[in-house]
């Protein structure tokens, strides 16, 4: 795959209920639409903890409260699209995913940090 890239961006969770069950479910459903592999990472005092972006169980088990910084990482041919959709979803407090399309057009967020593929 010549276009396999890894891209990541840190987002702050503003949802008052944190990364709760429905949030994780919606995130997983959106992540699943992309070919790219998606992971989320939270930094704790001990060590970074990772969860698969399509596993509700793994994400909820990180217990991410409001105000947390979460690194969203996507690897694959559509990594940038995946990252844009998923970070918009977090910024909308995990609202209905179909609203992402509207949000994307108005988003003036900086480009995500992009690095070479693994």
């Amino acid at each position: 795959m010549n276009s396999r890239i890894t891209t990541s961006r840190t987002v702050i969770v503003t949802n008052p209920d944190g990364w709760h069950l429905r949030a994780a479910s919606v995130f997983a459903q959106v992540a699943d639409r992309f070919e790219s592999k998606v992971e989320i990472v939270v930094h704790t005092k001990e060590e970074p903890r990772r969860a698969c972006g399509t596993s509700v169980l793994q994400m909820v088990s990180l217990g991410i409260p409001e105000g947390s910084e979460v690194l969203v990482e996507a690897t694959g041919s559509d990594a940038e699209d995946a990252l844009r959709a998923l970070t918009a979803l977090i910024q909308m407090d995990f609202d209905d995913p179909h609203e992402i399309q509207n949000k994307k057009r108005t988003s003036d967020a900086p480009d995500p940090e992009t690095s070479a593929g693994r």
């Binding site: 209920d17 944190g18 793994q58 909820v60 088990s61 217990g63």
Partner: peptide
Amino acid sequence: RPGDHLRALENISRQLR
């Protein structure tokens, strides 16, 4: 008390893994 709910979910899902 959203924090309590989140911590309960965290515990349940951690064990269920």
